[in-house]
Design a protein around this nucleic acid. Structure first.
Lengths: 228, 228
DNA sequence: GTCATAGTTTTCGTATACGATTTCATACTT
DNA sequence: AAGTATGAAATCGTATACGAAAACTATGAC
């Protein structure tokens, strides 16, 4: 788990370049604002610039890098507005993915999710935000990975990747919110376990994410999402 | 209106190639299965292959073309499963976009949508499915274009583009469904006009699309979407 | 007549090269 | 001293060229 960022390991050089750069962004080696110079990356990887360029444009399409004509690419920053857009979009697609996969989630999945959530509680006591964040993805993966619609699943992955690329910087992990979060996780599991209807699950999953966003926004006095 | 497919008119050659090819696909010049040979397109446009290749890979990311390593690209086909995935995804993102833009829709917008819907009724009497389809996009554009979240809006556009690329082929326009559709349009407008809450609008917009999908599926005895 | 195989053709994948654009540093003007 | 113009450096954008992989074709064996 937690390997979501790694995709096509081998393959064409453009694909290799794509995963290599993506990994750097998601893992935090390339932080927001970092300037991606074609020639430099090409040399580092031992490729020429053409496949690197292709990789970067693909990352641009996913929102991980910002690209300016004749200027170059930089790792996307943490503009609060962008963060809001990303979280709102994710709340919608993840909510749908969770609702769609709910009927396919078995007792084994639930058990695994509970175990992960228990570990998350641990992280709160021993204050380990990095691990907490990683486990959070593991937990939600259980809930949405069985989504039978690959398009929706792909959108969910993209959203998480974008968030991961912001992870290494400033905010995230509002302490009070983390405690609420693990409680909501348990509530979500109960809903799924009891075979609640899709609509109810979807709403709960959305609210869970909206609440995280709101917790962040309340620190930065920006506009609220759940107001909508 | 109806110009949604045309984006960056000028710009770098890769962008020009992108819009040119995209237009061909969406307008139906390149039908599903059509083989996109780099050298040929490059010659047609008067460019070299590198920007064309970049354009094609971008179209691949949007699902408009299918790309195989060392083989080439073909315009995406109308696999019923893919159609289901696309429609389901669109029902979700379009539903959200409509709900989010609803509070920003004014009386002028409503009036315009009504006019479009009236024209659609006309198309039913004079049996003009091509125009009907075009107007259908115009109608829905009024409902979702004010969505303040550009990410979501982008996903909606992508969904419509994919559908447009399938348009020219076989199915679409199940006669009975079209009549229902214009009625549902009016119902949607009433909801927005009366300031119904976001959740209600979202559900109605989703159902509207799911119903279109189901009408198609009932002809092909595939699995239903609204069953979920 | 059918299948397998070798050779040819097509087409993609990427390296290299060079022109175009932007950015940065420097010198000059007011 | 501040701002503007000029030139140099960095970087991108794309053309061209060639090697590699796949698809196609023709030939021969059975």
């Amino acid at each position: 788990m937690t390997e979501m960022a790694v995709e096509a390991k081998a393959g064409s050089k453009s694909e290799q370049a794509y995963s290599a750069i993506k990994t750097h962004i998601v893992e935090g080696t390339y932080t927001p604002g970092y300037r991606l110079v074609l020639a430099k990356i090409a040399e580092d990887l031992g490729f020429s610039v053409v496949p690197v360029r292709e990789a970067i444009r693909r990352l641009e399409a996913e929102g991980l890098v910002k690209f300016e004509r004749n200027v170059g690419a930089t790792v996307s920053g943490i503009d609060p507005t962008e963060y809001l857009y990303t979280m709102q979009t994710l709340s919608i697609v993840e909510g749908a993915a969770t609702a769609l996969s709910a009927p396919l989630i078995g007792p084994a999945d639930i058990a695994r999710a509970r175990a992960v959530n228990a570990e998350m509680r641990d992280c709160l006591e021993h204050f380990d935000p990095v691990r907490f964040t990683r486990l959070n993805l593991d937990f939600h993966s259980v809930l949405f990975e069985r989504c039978p619609n690959p398009h929706i699943l792909d959108l969910v992955h993209r959203g998480w990747n974008r968030l991961a690329s912001l992870r290494s910087s400033t905010f995230r992990f509002v302490p009070g919110r983390a405690h609420e979060s693990v409680e909501e996780h348990e509530a979500l599991l109960k809903l799924i376990e009891n075979g609640a209807d899709a609509d109810e699950i979807e709403k709960a999953a959305r609210r869970h994410r909206s609440a995280t966003l709101d917790a962040y926004l309340s620190q930065t006095n920006a506009a609220s999402l759940s107001a909508h």
